[in-house]
Amino acid sequence: MAKVEVKVCLGTTCFVMGGSNLQELNEIIPQKYGDKVELNAANCLGLCSINWEYSKAPYVKVNEAVVSEATVEKVLEEIDKQLGN
């Protein structure tokens, strides 16, 4: 089965809007999914400036799906969905 790729945005906007809490994923994901999920960080994904008035940072990408106003729970939910759990 193909790996799920998770990209956490650590750009300034995402970081101050709550992205800092997402660093927990670093521990949770390997524990929970082993090597089924690959976790990466990214600099500004460019999402926060597109529609900035309605910015829903922090953003996380799970494969091509964008999780906005991301929390640890929301990201795990999306991973589960993509893994078909």
Binding site: V8, L10, G11, Q23, N26, N40, A42, N43, C44
Partner: peptide, 23 residues
């Protein structure tokens, strides 16, 4: 980050962000 992205794009050198725990 944006500056790094620009340089990465212009010179075609990848920039790899690190999700480090103790930052």
């Amino acid at each position: 980050g944006t500056t790094a992205n620009i340089i990465s794009r212009e010179l075609n050198i990848p920039v790899i962000a690190k999700l480090s725990m103790n930052s």
